[in-house]
Design a protein around this nucleic acid. Structure first.
Lengths: 236, 236
DNA sequence: GTCTATATTATGATAGAC
DNA sequence: GTCTATCATAATATAGAC
Protein backbone atom coordinates (compact mmCIF):
# COMPACT_ATOMS: atom_id res chain seq x y z
CA UNK A 1 0.00 0.00 0.00
CA UNK A 2 2.99 2.27 -0.05
CA UNK A 3 2.16 4.96 -2.53
CA UNK A 4 5.43 4.81 -4.41
CA UNK A 5 7.57 1.72 -4.56
CA UNK A 6 9.77 0.49 -7.42
CA UNK A 7 8.85 -2.41 -9.61
CA UNK A 8 7.65 -5.05 -7.21
CA UNK A 9 4.78 -6.82 -8.84
CA UNK A 10 1.17 -5.83 -8.56
CA UNK A 11 1.25 -2.84 -6.25
CA UNK A 12 0.46 0.50 -7.74
CA UNK A 13 -0.39 4.13 -7.17
CA UNK A 14 -2.64 4.96 -4.30
CA UNK A 15 -6.31 4.16 -4.40
CA UNK A 16 -8.26 6.12 -6.98
CA UNK A 17 -10.34 7.96 -4.42
CA UNK A 18 -7.38 10.05 -3.28
CA UNK A 19 -6.60 13.40 -4.82
CA UNK A 20 -5.98 12.25 -8.36
CA UNK A 21 -6.24 15.69 -9.88
CA UNK A 22 -6.46 15.37 -13.63
CA UNK A 23 -5.40 11.79 -13.80
CA UNK A 24 -5.66 11.19 -17.48
CA UNK A 25 -6.07 14.37 -19.41
CA UNK A 26 -3.66 16.52 -17.46
CA UNK A 27 -0.26 16.66 -19.08
CA UNK A 28 1.04 18.19 -15.91
CA UNK A 29 0.20 17.86 -12.27
CA UNK A 30 1.10 14.15 -12.07
CA UNK A 31 1.01 12.99 -8.51
CA UNK A 32 4.00 10.71 -8.08
CA UNK A 33 6.83 9.49 -10.26
CA UNK A 34 5.16 6.15 -10.68
CA UNK A 35 1.84 7.71 -11.55
CA UNK A 36 3.52 9.94 -14.07
CA UNK A 37 4.68 6.83 -15.86
CA UNK A 38 1.21 5.38 -15.59
CA UNK A 39 -0.38 8.46 -17.15
CA UNK A 40 2.09 8.46 -20.00
CA UNK A 41 1.45 4.79 -20.63
CA UNK A 42 -2.31 5.24 -20.63
CA UNK A 43 -2.05 7.95 -23.25
CA UNK A 44 0.37 6.01 -25.44
CA UNK A 45 -1.65 2.81 -25.26
CA UNK A 46 -4.77 4.76 -26.07
CA UNK A 47 -3.26 6.42 -29.12
CA UNK A 48 -1.32 3.55 -30.65
CA UNK A 49 -2.71 0.49 -28.98
CA UNK A 50 -0.87 -1.79 -26.59
CA UNK A 51 0.94 -3.68 -29.31
CA UNK A 52 2.14 -0.73 -31.32
CA UNK A 53 3.10 1.54 -28.45
CA UNK A 54 6.68 1.05 -27.36
CA UNK A 55 8.32 1.64 -24.04
CA UNK A 56 10.36 4.28 -25.77
CA UNK A 57 7.12 6.02 -26.72
CA UNK A 58 6.04 6.08 -23.10
CA UNK A 59 9.39 7.43 -21.99
CA UNK A 60 9.52 10.01 -24.75
CA UNK A 61 6.13 11.34 -23.71
CA UNK A 62 7.62 12.15 -20.32
CA UNK A 63 10.73 13.65 -21.86
CA UNK A 64 12.71 10.74 -20.44
CA UNK A 65 14.24 7.47 -21.52
CA UNK A 66 13.49 3.80 -20.97
CA UNK A 67 15.38 3.61 -17.73
CA UNK A 68 12.76 5.66 -15.96
CA UNK A 69 9.95 3.38 -17.07
CA UNK A 70 11.72 0.16 -16.19
CA UNK A 71 12.60 1.52 -12.81
CA UNK A 72 8.93 1.55 -11.89
CA UNK A 73 7.57 -1.29 -13.97
CA UNK A 74 9.10 -4.65 -14.62
CA UNK A 75 7.60 -5.10 -18.07
CA UNK A 76 5.28 -3.61 -20.64
CA UNK A 77 2.56 -6.07 -19.71
CA UNK A 78 2.84 -5.05 -16.08
CA UNK A 79 2.29 -1.48 -17.15
CA UNK A 80 -0.76 -2.47 -19.15
CA UNK A 81 -2.21 -4.40 -16.25
CA UNK A 82 -1.76 -1.45 -13.95
CA UNK A 83 -3.43 0.95 -16.37
CA UNK A 84 -6.44 -1.33 -16.64
CA UNK A 85 -6.59 -1.95 -12.92
CA UNK A 86 -6.53 1.77 -12.28
CA UNK A 87 -9.28 2.34 -14.82
CA UNK A 88 -11.53 -0.27 -13.27
CA UNK A 89 -10.98 0.81 -9.67
CA UNK A 90 -11.53 4.42 -10.59
CA UNK A 91 -14.83 3.91 -12.32
CA UNK A 92 -16.11 1.34 -9.90
CA UNK A 93 -15.43 3.43 -6.81
CA UNK A 94 -17.20 6.44 -8.22
CA UNK A 95 -20.15 4.41 -9.45
CA UNK A 96 -20.52 2.54 -6.19
CA UNK A 97 -20.47 5.80 -4.26
CA UNK A 98 -23.18 7.22 -6.50
CA UNK A 99 -25.26 4.10 -6.06
CA UNK A 100 -25.12 4.39 -2.28
CA UNK A 101 -25.78 8.13 -2.25
CA UNK A 102 -29.55 8.02 -2.43
CA UNK A 103 -32.81 6.11 -2.71
CA UNK A 104 -33.40 3.26 -5.19
CA UNK A 105 -35.63 5.36 -7.42
CA UNK A 106 -32.90 7.44 -8.96
CA UNK A 107 -30.13 4.95 -8.37
CA UNK A 108 -29.47 3.85 -11.92
CA UNK A 109 -29.49 7.42 -13.18
CA UNK A 110 -26.93 8.36 -10.55
CA UNK A 111 -24.78 5.36 -11.40
CA UNK A 112 -24.87 6.10 -15.11
CA UNK A 113 -23.92 9.71 -14.52
CA UNK A 114 -20.98 8.73 -12.35
CA UNK A 115 -19.87 6.07 -14.81
CA UNK A 116 -20.13 8.44 -17.76
CA UNK A 117 -18.38 11.26 -15.91
CA UNK A 118 -15.42 8.97 -15.40
CA UNK A 119 -15.53 7.77 -18.99
CA UNK A 120 -15.14 11.34 -20.20
CA UNK A 121 -12.73 12.48 -17.53
CA UNK A 122 -10.35 9.53 -17.41
CA UNK A 123 -10.77 8.57 -21.02
CA UNK A 124 -7.22 7.37 -21.71
CA UNK A 125 -7.39 4.83 -18.92
CA UNK A 126 -10.81 3.53 -19.87
CA UNK A 127 -9.98 3.44 -23.52
CA UNK A 128 -7.06 1.15 -22.77
CA UNK A 129 -9.17 -1.00 -20.48
CA UNK A 130 -11.75 -1.42 -23.22
CA UNK A 131 -9.09 -2.17 -25.77
CA UNK A 132 -9.31 -5.72 -24.66
CA UNK A 133 -8.25 -7.21 -21.40
CA UNK A 134 -8.86 -10.63 -22.82
CA UNK A 135 -6.79 -9.86 -25.88
CA UNK A 136 -3.52 -9.70 -24.05
CA UNK A 137 -4.44 -12.47 -21.70
CA UNK A 138 -2.86 -14.86 -24.15
CA UNK A 139 0.39 -12.96 -24.00
CA UNK A 140 0.60 -13.67 -20.30
CA UNK A 141 3.22 -16.30 -19.80
CA UNK A 142 4.26 -16.21 -16.16
CA UNK A 143 1.90 -17.32 -13.40
CA UNK A 144 2.12 -13.87 -11.80
CA UNK A 145 0.89 -12.28 -15.00
CA UNK A 146 -1.95 -14.69 -15.40
CA UNK A 147 -2.89 -14.01 -11.81
CA UNK A 148 -2.83 -10.27 -12.35
CA UNK A 149 -5.02 -10.59 -15.41
CA UNK A 150 -7.47 -12.80 -13.57
CA UNK A 151 -7.68 -10.00 -11.05
CA UNK A 152 -8.66 -7.59 -13.78
CA UNK A 153 -11.46 -9.84 -14.93
CA UNK A 154 -12.69 -9.94 -11.36
CA UNK A 155 -12.69 -6.15 -11.17
CA UNK A 156 -14.60 -5.88 -14.40
CA UNK A 157 -17.18 -8.38 -13.22
CA UNK A 158 -17.56 -6.52 -9.96
CA UNK A 159 -18.43 -3.36 -11.80
CA UNK A 160 -20.90 -5.15 -14.00
CA UNK A 161 -22.54 -6.80 -11.02
CA UNK A 162 -23.15 -3.36 -9.57
CA UNK A 163 -25.33 -2.60 -12.57
CA UNK A 164 -26.98 -6.00 -12.55
CA UNK A 165 -27.99 -5.47 -8.98
CA UNK A 166 -29.48 -2.08 -9.72
CA UNK A 167 -31.40 -3.43 -12.69
CA UNK A 168 -32.78 -6.35 -10.71
CA UNK A 169 -33.79 -3.99 -7.95
CA UNK A 170 -35.56 -1.72 -10.40
CA UNK A 171 -37.44 -4.64 -11.87
CA UNK A 172 -38.50 -5.73 -8.41
CA UNK A 173 -39.79 -2.27 -7.69
CA UNK A 174 -41.68 -2.24 -10.94
CA UNK A 175 -39.60 0.62 -12.30
CA UNK A 176 -38.26 -1.39 -15.20
CA UNK A 177 -39.62 -4.07 -17.47
CA UNK A 178 -38.56 -7.64 -16.68
CA UNK A 179 -35.51 -8.61 -18.67
CA UNK A 180 -32.46 -10.81 -18.98
CA UNK A 181 -30.51 -8.99 -16.31
CA UNK A 182 -26.89 -9.89 -17.14
CA UNK A 183 -27.47 -9.38 -20.84
CA UNK A 184 -29.15 -6.05 -20.27
CA UNK A 185 -26.36 -4.89 -17.98
CA UNK A 186 -23.75 -5.78 -20.58
CA UNK A 187 -25.67 -4.04 -23.33
CA UNK A 188 -26.29 -0.94 -21.29
CA UNK A 189 -22.64 -0.72 -20.31
CA UNK A 190 -21.63 -1.10 -23.93
CA UNK A 191 -23.85 1.86 -24.80
CA UNK A 192 -22.42 3.93 -21.98
CA UNK A 193 -18.85 2.99 -22.84
CA UNK A 194 -19.30 3.88 -26.47
CA UNK A 195 -18.36 7.48 -25.82
CA UNK A 196 -14.82 6.46 -24.96
CA UNK A 197 -14.24 5.70 -28.62
CA UNK A 198 -15.43 8.91 -30.19
CA UNK A 199 -15.48 11.56 -27.49
CA UNK A 200 -12.87 14.26 -27.71
CA UNK A 201 -12.91 17.34 -25.51
CA UNK A 202 -13.65 20.25 -27.81
CA UNK A 203 -11.92 23.54 -27.47
CA UNK A 204 -13.69 25.80 -25.02
CA UNK A 205 -15.90 22.98 -23.79
CA UNK A 206 -17.58 23.80 -20.51
CA UNK A 207 -18.62 21.61 -17.63
CA UNK A 208 -22.20 22.27 -18.70
CA UNK A 209 -21.48 20.92 -22.18
CA UNK A 210 -20.13 17.72 -20.71
CA UNK A 211 -23.10 17.40 -18.39
CA UNK A 212 -25.50 17.77 -21.26
CA UNK A 213 -23.71 15.02 -23.15
CA UNK A 214 -23.83 12.80 -20.08
CA UNK A 215 -27.53 13.43 -19.61
CA UNK A 216 -28.34 12.53 -23.21
CA UNK A 217 -26.42 9.28 -23.12
CA UNK A 218 -27.78 8.36 -19.72
CA UNK A 219 -31.30 9.06 -20.95
CA UNK A 220 -30.92 6.60 -23.81
CA UNK A 221 -29.45 3.97 -21.52
CA UNK A 222 -32.24 4.41 -19.00
CA UNK A 223 -35.07 4.29 -21.48
CA UNK A 224 -33.79 0.97 -22.71
CA UNK A 225 -34.81 -0.44 -19.37
CA UNK A 226 -38.44 0.51 -19.87
CA UNK A 227 -39.86 -2.15 -22.12
CA UNK A 228 -43.06 -1.83 -24.12
CA UNK A 229 -44.65 -3.66 -21.20
CA UNK A 230 -44.10 -0.63 -19.02
CA UNK A 231 -45.78 1.59 -21.55
CA UNK A 232 -48.88 -0.53 -21.62
CA UNK A 233 -48.92 -0.71 -17.87
CA UNK A 234 -48.24 -4.43 -17.81
CA UNK A 235 -45.89 -5.15 -14.95
CA UNK A 236 -44.20 -8.52 -14.43
CA UNK B 1 -13.52 -6.31 -59.67
CA UNK B 2 -11.74 -9.51 -60.57
CA UNK B 3 -12.49 -11.87 -57.75
CA UNK B 4 -8.94 -13.03 -57.21
CA UNK B 5 -5.95 -10.95 -58.09
CA UNK B 6 -2.56 -10.84 -56.41
CA UNK B 7 -1.41 -7.97 -54.24
CA UNK B 8 -2.39 -4.91 -56.22
CA UNK B 9 -3.56 -2.33 -53.79
CA UNK B 10 -7.09 -1.86 -52.62
CA UNK B 11 -9.00 -4.49 -54.55
CA UNK B 12 -10.29 -7.43 -52.62
CA UNK B 13 -12.57 -10.46 -52.51
CA UNK B 14 -15.86 -10.15 -54.25
CA UNK B 15 -18.65 -8.09 -52.80
CA UNK B 16 -20.05 -9.44 -49.57
CA UNK B 17 -23.42 -10.28 -50.99
CA UNK B 18 -22.02 -13.19 -52.99
CA UNK B 19 -22.02 -16.71 -51.63
CA UNK B 20 -19.78 -16.12 -48.66
CA UNK B 21 -20.68 -19.33 -46.88
CA UNK B 22 -19.37 -19.19 -43.33
CA UNK B 23 -17.11 -16.25 -43.88
CA UNK B 24 -15.70 -15.84 -40.45
CA UNK B 25 -16.42 -18.79 -38.25
CA UNK B 26 -15.94 -21.54 -40.77
CA UNK B 27 -12.47 -23.04 -40.59
CA UNK B 28 -13.16 -24.70 -43.86
CA UNK B 29 -15.14 -23.81 -46.94
CA UNK B 30 -13.08 -20.72 -47.73
CA UNK B 31 -14.10 -19.32 -51.07
CA UNK B 32 -10.91 -18.26 -52.77
CA UNK B 33 -7.23 -18.31 -51.93
CA UNK B 34 -7.27 -14.63 -51.19
CA UNK B 35 -10.32 -14.92 -48.99
CA UNK B 36 -8.76 -17.78 -47.12
CA UNK B 37 -5.94 -15.43 -46.18
CA UNK B 38 -8.48 -12.80 -45.21
CA UNK B 39 -10.36 -15.19 -42.94
CA UNK B 40 -7.18 -16.29 -41.24
CA UNK B 41 -6.13 -12.69 -40.73
CA UNK B 42 -9.51 -11.74 -39.26
CA UNK B 43 -9.25 -14.53 -36.73
CA UNK B 44 -5.67 -13.76 -35.78
CA UNK B 45 -6.29 -10.04 -35.43
CA UNK B 46 -9.34 -10.77 -33.35
CA UNK B 47 -7.49 -13.06 -30.97
CA UNK B 48 -4.22 -11.22 -30.52
CA UNK B 49 -4.91 -7.75 -31.80
CA UNK B 50 -3.43 -6.15 -34.87
CA UNK B 51 -0.16 -5.25 -33.21
CA UNK B 52 0.55 -8.57 -31.56
CA UNK B 53 -0.58 -10.85 -34.39
CA UNK B 54 2.23 -11.63 -36.78
CA UNK B 55 2.16 -12.52 -40.44
CA UNK B 56 3.58 -15.86 -39.40
CA UNK B 57 0.55 -16.35 -37.16
CA UNK B 58 -1.75 -15.75 -40.08
CA UNK B 59 0.18 -18.17 -42.28
CA UNK B 60 0.39 -20.78 -39.54
CA UNK B 61 -3.37 -20.71 -39.13
CA UNK B 62 -3.71 -21.78 -42.75
CA UNK B 63 -1.00 -24.39 -42.41
CA UNK B 64 1.16 -22.33 -44.72
CA UNK B 65 4.07 -19.92 -44.58
CA UNK B 66 4.57 -16.22 -45.08
CA UNK B 67 4.99 -16.52 -48.80
CA UNK B 68 1.35 -17.33 -49.24
CA UNK B 69 0.24 -14.25 -47.34
CA UNK B 70 2.57 -11.87 -49.09
CA UNK B 71 1.53 -13.23 -52.44
CA UNK B 72 -1.95 -11.82 -51.87
CA UNK B 73 -1.27 -8.82 -49.67
CA UNK B 74 1.49 -6.30 -49.92
CA UNK B 75 1.71 -5.58 -46.21
CA UNK B 76 0.20 -6.29 -42.84
CA UNK B 77 -1.58 -2.96 -42.86
CA UNK B 78 -3.11 -3.75 -46.23
CA UNK B 79 -4.46 -6.94 -44.74
CA UNK B 80 -5.92 -5.05 -41.83
CA UNK B 81 -7.56 -2.52 -44.11
CA UNK B 82 -9.14 -5.26 -46.15
CA UNK B 83 -10.50 -7.05 -43.11
CA UNK B 84 -12.12 -3.85 -41.90
CA UNK B 85 -13.44 -2.97 -45.32
CA UNK B 86 -14.99 -6.40 -45.64
CA UNK B 87 -16.57 -6.10 -42.21
CA UNK B 88 -18.11 -2.73 -43.00
CA UNK B 89 -19.41 -3.68 -46.43
CA UNK B 90 -20.84 -6.90 -45.10
CA UNK B 91 -22.80 -5.34 -42.29
CA UNK B 92 -23.87 -2.32 -44.27
CA UNK B 93 -25.23 -4.27 -47.20
CA UNK B 94 -27.29 -6.53 -45.00
CA UNK B 95 -28.59 -3.66 -42.90
CA UNK B 96 -29.46 -1.54 -45.92
CA UNK B 97 -31.33 -4.44 -47.47
CA UNK B 98 -33.31 -4.95 -44.27
CA UNK B 99 -34.10 -1.26 -44.11
CA UNK B 100 -35.52 -1.31 -47.62
CA UNK B 101 -37.46 -4.52 -47.13
CA UNK B 102 -40.54 -3.08 -45.54
CA UNK B 103 -42.51 -0.13 -44.18
CA UNK B 104 -41.04 2.54 -41.90
CA UNK B 105 -42.87 1.25 -38.84
CA UNK B 106 -40.71 -1.79 -38.31
CA UNK B 107 -37.67 -0.43 -40.09
CA UNK B 108 -35.38 0.08 -37.14
CA UNK B 109 -36.22 -3.32 -35.71
CA UNK B 110 -35.37 -4.95 -39.04
CA UNK B 111 -32.14 -3.01 -39.28
CA UNK B 112 -31.07 -3.92 -35.78
CA UNK B 113 -31.79 -7.58 -36.40
CA UNK B 114 -29.77 -7.58 -39.59
CA UNK B 115 -26.93 -5.70 -37.94
CA UNK B 116 -26.89 -8.02 -34.96
CA UNK B 117 -27.13 -11.13 -37.09
CA UNK B 118 -23.98 -10.07 -38.87
CA UNK B 119 -22.27 -9.16 -35.60
CA UNK B 120 -22.78 -12.71 -34.36
CA UNK B 121 -22.14 -14.45 -37.63
CA UNK B 122 -19.08 -12.56 -38.85
CA UNK B 123 -17.75 -11.77 -35.45
CA UNK B 124 -14.01 -12.00 -36.26
CA UNK B 125 -14.30 -9.37 -38.95
CA UNK B 126 -16.37 -7.00 -36.88
CA UNK B 127 -14.25 -7.48 -33.84
CA UNK B 128 -11.23 -6.37 -35.82
CA UNK B 129 -13.10 -3.44 -37.29
CA UNK B 130 -14.10 -2.29 -33.82
CA UNK B 131 -10.59 -2.76 -32.52
CA UNK B 132 -9.93 0.70 -33.73
CA UNK B 133 -9.70 1.93 -37.26
CA UNK B 134 -8.47 5.23 -35.98
CA UNK B 135 -5.80 3.55 -33.90
CA UNK B 136 -3.78 2.35 -36.83
CA UNK B 137 -4.47 5.45 -38.84
CA UNK B 138 -1.30 6.90 -37.37
CA UNK B 139 0.71 3.95 -38.58
CA UNK B 140 -0.28 4.77 -42.14
CA UNK B 141 2.72 6.31 -43.78
CA UNK B 142 2.22 6.08 -47.52
CA UNK B 143 -0.43 8.18 -49.29
CA UNK B 144 -2.11 5.01 -50.55
CA UNK B 145 -2.52 3.76 -47.02
CA UNK B 146 -3.92 7.02 -45.77
CA UNK B 147 -6.33 6.97 -48.67
CA UNK B 148 -7.43 3.44 -47.90
CA UNK B 149 -8.01 4.31 -44.29
CA UNK B 150 -9.99 7.39 -45.21
CA UNK B 151 -12.16 5.07 -47.26
CA UNK B 152 -12.82 2.97 -44.17
CA UNK B 153 -13.94 6.00 -42.22
CA UNK B 154 -16.32 6.81 -45.06
CA UNK B 155 -17.76 3.30 -44.95
CA UNK B 156 -18.24 3.51 -41.21
CA UNK B 157 -19.98 6.85 -41.52
CA UNK B 158 -22.23 5.52 -44.24
CA UNK B 159 -23.42 2.74 -41.96
CA UNK B 160 -24.03 5.15 -39.14
CA UNK B 161 -25.96 7.51 -41.39
CA UNK B 162 -28.28 4.65 -42.23
CA UNK B 163 -29.27 4.51 -38.59
CA UNK B 164 -29.43 8.27 -38.24
CA UNK B 165 -31.85 8.41 -41.11
CA UNK B 166 -34.06 5.73 -39.60
CA UNK B 167 -34.08 7.48 -36.25
CA UNK B 168 -34.95 10.85 -37.76
CA UNK B 169 -37.71 9.22 -39.75
CA UNK B 170 -39.10 7.56 -36.64
CA UNK B 171 -39.08 10.85 -34.79
CA UNK B 172 -40.89 12.52 -37.67
CA UNK B 173 -43.53 9.81 -37.58
CA UNK B 174 -43.94 10.22 -33.86
CA UNK B 175 -42.67 6.72 -33.20
CA UNK B 176 -39.70 7.87 -31.16
CA UNK B 177 -39.04 10.68 -28.77
CA UNK B 178 -37.13 13.66 -30.18
CA UNK B 179 -33.44 13.32 -29.56
CA UNK B 180 -29.93 14.25 -30.59
CA UNK B 181 -29.94 12.04 -33.67
CA UNK B 182 -26.20 11.51 -34.34
CA UNK B 183 -25.47 10.97 -30.66
CA UNK B 184 -28.34 8.53 -30.30
CA UNK B 185 -27.25 6.61 -33.38
CA UNK B 186 -23.73 6.29 -32.04
CA UNK B 187 -24.95 5.17 -28.65
CA UNK B 188 -27.40 2.66 -30.07
CA UNK B 189 -24.73 1.21 -32.33
CA UNK B 190 -22.36 0.93 -29.39
CA UNK B 191 -24.98 -1.07 -27.54
CA UNK B 192 -25.60 -3.32 -30.53
CA UNK B 193 -21.89 -3.80 -31.15
CA UNK B 194 -21.23 -4.73 -27.55
CA UNK B 195 -21.98 -8.37 -28.26
CA UNK B 196 -18.93 -8.64 -30.46
CA UNK B 197 -16.77 -8.42 -27.35
CA UNK B 198 -18.35 -11.06 -25.21
CA UNK B 199 -20.39 -13.33 -27.49
CA UNK B 200 -19.06 -16.78 -28.09
CA UNK B 201 -21.06 -19.47 -29.85
CA UNK B 202 -21.88 -22.07 -27.24
CA UNK B 203 -21.72 -25.73 -27.94
CA UNK B 204 -24.96 -27.01 -29.40
CA UNK B 205 -26.29 -23.51 -29.90
CA UNK B 206 -29.26 -23.41 -32.21
CA UNK B 207 -30.45 -20.79 -34.65
CA UNK B 208 -33.32 -20.16 -32.26
CA UNK B 209 -30.90 -19.44 -29.43
CA UNK B 210 -29.16 -16.84 -31.52
CA UNK B 211 -32.44 -15.29 -32.57
CA UNK B 212 -33.52 -14.99 -28.97
CA UNK B 213 -30.28 -13.22 -28.13
CA UNK B 214 -30.74 -10.90 -31.07
CA UNK B 215 -34.29 -10.09 -30.05
CA UNK B 216 -33.28 -9.24 -26.51
CA UNK B 217 -30.51 -6.91 -27.56
CA UNK B 218 -32.62 -5.32 -30.25
CA UNK B 219 -35.41 -4.77 -27.72
CA UNK B 220 -33.11 -2.85 -25.41
CA UNK B 221 -31.77 -0.78 -28.28
CA UNK B 222 -35.26 0.04 -29.52
CA UNK B 223 -36.69 0.97 -26.16
CA UNK B 224 -33.92 3.49 -25.74
CA UNK B 225 -35.53 5.44 -28.55
CA UNK B 226 -38.80 5.83 -26.65
CA UNK B 227 -38.19 8.64 -24.24
CA UNK B 228 -40.24 9.30 -21.11
CA UNK B 229 -42.18 11.71 -23.28
CA UNK B 230 -43.62 8.80 -25.20
CA UNK B 231 -44.78 7.17 -22.00
CA UNK B 232 -46.69 10.21 -20.94
CA UNK B 233 -48.19 10.58 -24.35
CA UNK B 234 -46.36 13.81 -25.03
CA UNK B 235 -45.23 13.78 -28.62
CA UNK B 236 -42.82 16.34 -30.08
C1' DG C 1 16.42 7.58 -9.87
C1' DT C 2 17.76 8.34 -14.30
C1' DC C 3 20.78 7.84 -18.03
C1' DT C 4 23.64 5.45 -21.84
C1' DA C 5 24.94 1.51 -23.97
C1' DT C 6 23.99 -3.22 -25.41
C1' DA C 7 22.28 -8.11 -25.71
C1' DT C 8 18.65 -10.60 -27.66
C1' DT C 9 14.83 -11.68 -30.02
C1' DA C 10 11.00 -11.19 -33.02
C1' DT C 11 8.93 -9.87 -37.06
C1' DG C 12 7.87 -7.28 -41.41
C1' DA C 13 9.29 -7.69 -45.83
C1' DT C 14 12.12 -9.49 -49.97
C1' DA C 15 14.53 -12.67 -53.32
C1' DG C 16 14.65 -16.54 -55.67
C1' DA C 17 14.08 -21.79 -56.03
C1' DC C 18 10.55 -25.06 -57.34
C1' DG D 1 1.31 -19.98 -56.18
C1' DT D 2 3.86 -21.55 -52.52
C1' DC D 3 8.03 -22.50 -50.22
C1' DT D 4 12.74 -21.68 -48.09
C1' DA D 5 16.12 -18.74 -46.87
C1' DT D 6 17.66 -14.16 -45.58
C1' DC D 7 17.90 -9.14 -44.56
C1' DA D 8 16.93 -5.27 -41.95
C1' DT D 9 14.85 -3.15 -38.40
C1' DA D 10 12.68 -2.26 -34.21
C1' DA D 11 11.66 -3.03 -29.62
C1' DT D 12 11.88 -5.58 -25.01
C1' DA D 13 14.68 -5.93 -21.39
C1' DT D 14 19.23 -5.66 -18.89
C1' DA D 15 23.79 -3.93 -16.99
C1' DG D 16 26.20 -0.60 -15.19
C1' DA D 17 27.82 4.42 -15.06
C1' DC D 18 26.57 8.73 -12.82
Amino acid sequence: MTPAEPAAGANAPDSPDAARAEAAGGREGARSPREEVLDAAAQCFMEKGFGAASIDDVARRMGATKGRVYHWYRSKLDLFVDVVRYSLELIHDQTAAAAAAGPPEGRMARMLRAHLRSILRDRPYHRVALQGVDLHLRAATTPEQREALAGLIALRDRHQRLFEKAIAEGVELGLYAPCDVPLTARTMLAAANGAVFWYRPREGETEADRNELIEKIAAYCLHGLHGPAAEKGEKA
